[in-house]
């Protein structure tokens, strides 16, 4: 049970995209909250609008024609949707929100060394020497051995798991209060998945950093999250404490999701 104040408050969010002649209601009236230091899970079938919500909330919408973008979005009491770009950039650079993505290779610049890509995300208040030290500390914190060596490498010279850890280091560079993780382990091998998730969880606890994890894996939710949002077709169909959801799902759709995932898990164990 988490009784800290609300950090991110989303009310009646609507994101309608224009895809050619049709209007896709990717998000259609969603309420969503994350408290300070809380870990929230977002589950739902493919196309239900999980990524779109994360990107709308962090103002990282892709370059598509937007039909409607409305709702009341506050972070730490500040309005996000109407926030001027300069203020938004300041928020991203310090104590704001960060995001990591499913495909770390595509989200790292292939022509730049890791160290530089992390250094870019650091707030510019210290000299270059201090930056190097902070880059190494971050790499160490996300569980990468020999940080000095990693910092000199290019993304293609790392493994998938290492790349995702680098993405996490980039996200942590601004010392965020909230980290969005959009299917952070889907692209990784099963064993690596677990390690990366453990790292995320450790960082969440150590830094008292709120997290919102988007996933298809209800097992992940059961292990890590305090609360869950179940999404379907642009709407939240159920939100509950994790324990409550698993023991007593209120919505039919949630029940089916849980059944599906437990069946998958037992079959996986039997094989």
């Amino acid at each position: 049970m988490n009784a800290s104040p609300v950090l991110l408050d989303v009310r009646d969010l609507k994101v309608h995209l224009r895809v050619g002649p049709v209007l896709v209601k990717a998000i259609d009236g969603v309420d969503f909250q994350v408290r300070h230091g809380e870990c929230v899970g977002i589950v739902g079938e493919s196309g239900s609008g999980k990524s779109t919500m994360a990107r709308a909330v962090t103002r990282l919408m892709p370059n598509v024609a937007i039909g409607e973008l409305s709702g009341r979005l506050t972070f730490d009491g500040r309005d996000i949707l109407g926030m001027p770009d300069a203020e938004l950039r300041r928020l991203r650079r310090g104590r704001g929100f960060s995001m990591i993505f499913q495909d770390p290779l595509g989200y790292l610049n292939p022509t730049q060394r890791i160290g530089r890509q992390i250094g870019e995300a650091l707030a510019r208040d210290a000299g270059a020497g201090a930056d190097q030290a902070r880059i190494r500390t971050l790499l160490d914190e996300v569980g990468l051995p020999d940080p000095a060596n990693i910092a000199r490498r290019y993304p293609h010279e790392l493994s998938g798991g290492q790349r995702q850890r680098v993405m996490i280091a980039i996200a942590l560079a601004s010392d965020p209060q909230l980290l969005f993780a959009d299917e952070p382990t889907t692209a990784l091998d099963a064993t690596v998945q677990l390690q990366v998730l453990q790292t995320l969880y450790r960082l969440h606890r150590e830094r008292n950093m709120a997290m919102a994890i988007i996933t298809h894996d209800l097992g992940v939710v059961a292990e890590l999250c305090d609360r869950v949002y179940v999404m379907r077709a642009g709407k939240v169909v159920e939100s509950a404490e994790t324990v409550t959801l698993f023991e007593n799902p209120a919505h039919d759709y949630s029940r089916r999701l849980i059944e599906l995932s437990t069946r998958r898990h037992t079959r996986g164990a039997g094989a």
């Binding site: 950039r89 991203r92 993505f101 790292l108």
Partner: peptide
Amino acid sequence: LSQGYIVTARAKGL
């Protein structure tokens, strides 16, 4: 501009 690392760069607050 449509690449993922541009999204990362925006997320960094550049």
